[in-house]
Amino acid sequence: MKYVRTVWLHLSKDLRLEWRSRDAIIAMLSFTLLIAVVFALAFDPTGQPTTARAVSGGLLWMGLLFAATTALNGSWDRERRNQVLDAQRMTPAAPSALFLGKAIANFLFVAAVEVILGPVFFLFFNLHVLGDAKWLAAILPLGTWALVVNGTFLAVLSLRTRNRAMMLPMVLFPVAIPALLAMVQATTAVLTGEFEPQLWIRVLFGYDVIFTTISILLFEAVLNAE
């Protein structure tokens, strides 16, 4: 119970900070919007609706991955200012509560971006869903969590390196590849209706469970690394 309270405290702090500055969400929104526009211009979805349907799932997730990467580095920057991170290390509270709180906060930010930009994507790419749209309600949160849980963890890891703006994508992209494949395949399955997305949703779910567990287990080691 105390653990849940600590997580909530970290989460509410991050949400309040974001509410006051809105830095992460605005940056991600404009970045993903630009990516959607650039991709739409590059692939001409109006001329080739079938191609657009087949590739837009991948493009959507690529955009979100890039946008999340830019925001995730910033989310730990807040903890570095005024040596907050050192203070966190000295508290007796469970270190993984800090991680979970931040991961949930980042999840909510990326989810907010999806809610706003998902329809924009549909609009630019002239999409209409040929498969069973209800699966998207499972794919989007599971996929977002997969990106965010690893991204938050690996961002605190790359916080300890020089050149960390480059380090996060260097470590996040290879680790995220199975999740990326699963979410792109599942989304494409729903958009094209050519195959069933269930297998990929299961892969995504398994990936989420495994990486959430090891992130929570290993966070203490990374936080106290010196």
Partner: peptide, 30 residues
């Protein structure tokens, strides 16, 4: 190897060890 190159001391050893576990879990899933 890049992570190790861009970090130093005990920090580098710890984060590299953590990354190695991530890699070990990731490869079978892939």
């Amino acid at each position: 190897l890049l992570v190790r190159r861009y970090s130093s001391g005990m920090q580098a050893y710890t984060i590299a060890a953590v990354l190695s576990i991530f890699a070990g879990v990731d490869v079978p899933i892939v």
